[in-house]
Simulated assay, not measured.
Amino acid sequence: MRILCLHGKGTSAAIFRSQTSSFRAQLADKNIEFDFVDGPHLTTAAAGVDLFYDPPYYAWYDGDGLETVREAHNWLNEYIAANGPYDAAMMFSQGCVLGSSALILHQEETPDMPPPFKAAIFICGGASLSVLEEMGFHVSAEARERDAASRSALVLQAGSMSLMTKGGNRWTGLGSLSDGLSEEELRNEIRSPYRIAIPTVHIYGSKDPRYAAGVHLSGVCEPEKRRTYDHGGGHEIPRTAAVSNSIAKLVQWALEQAETS
């Protein structure tokens, strides 16, 4: 089984490989090939990343409009055509935007063709609200407000100063903008004319400022074909044994679904 791996903005294939090493170690006895790919654009380091990882750093695209994401989607299609096929895709942060946009654009424009992958594993990331609106999804004003605030909060909480002074306590989520709302209430902030139809896994952390974005994305996917998991942390992949074991099981589930779909 082959998994295409799409990193977050301001990181790299090598960094994503390191970030996922703990749960991938639990899958070492499985016949799984992880293909970690660098984005096509050089960029600066994501907040806090340069404290642990050396450059270069990459992004899949700059900006957040439909045409910018569509260019990245075209690049991805070319890569898959040359290096695929893939049974699943595993994505983090900006990689989730690219992967979800690719699936939505496929469903809108070429629904009679096979999707670019058979299952998706989204980690700490959401969909592009701009792409969703362009494709006919209704995005509420509350979702827009939360999305903008979460991006600013992420930069502050993930930044080098916060990391050095607060360590693991730097993750405080988004506060009042998401407190008290259930996951189902968050999902209902985006109304979908259709949903991503392949099996999906959604891994997010309740202390991540981008937590709501991850929950929103899960609502754009078929409820009967999705699995969700709150790892309890921030914009990261915790390496504890319990979290690693849970994520490994979810990856296995996604691949089993891909094999039978």
Rank of each mutant, 00 (worst) to 15 (best):
I196A: 07
T110W: 00
H7Q: 09
E183L: 07
G125P: 05
G99L: 08
S128Y: 13
G159W: 08
N169P: 00
S178M: 04
S21P: 05
A197C: 04
K30V: 00
A158V: 00
V97C: 04
T20N: 10
G10Y: 09
H235T: 11
H235A: 09
Y57G: 01
W253P: 03
S18D: 11
G173A: 10
C5Q: 11
R195V: 09
I15F: 06
L177R: 11
D147W: 02
T228I: 09
A241C: 08
L51H: 08
S12P: 12
S130V: 10
I190G: 01
G180M: 11
M161C: 00
Q107G: 08
D38N: 15
K249S: 10
L27C: 02
V37I: 15
D147P: 00
A143Q: 07
L27D: 02
A14S: 09
Q157A: 03
D35M: 07
A72K: 13
I190A: 01
R239S: 13
C96A: 10
I123E: 03
E259F: 10
R187Q: 15
L27T: 04
I196C: 06
L132H: 10
F122P: 00
I121G: 01
F16K: 02
R2C: 02
M164T: 12
P193C: 09
G233A: 15
W171N: 05
Q94P: 05
T11N: 01
E133D: 14
A119F: 08
I247N: 02
I198D: 02
R210Y: 05
R24G: 01
G205Q: 11
S21F: 03
E256G: 15
G167N: 14
D35S: 12
N83P: 07
M91Q: 14
L6Y: 10
A46T: 00
L51D: 13
N188V: 00
M90V: 07
N188S: 13
S150D: 01
R226D: 02
E78D: 15
G219H: 07
G214Q: 05
A213Q: 13
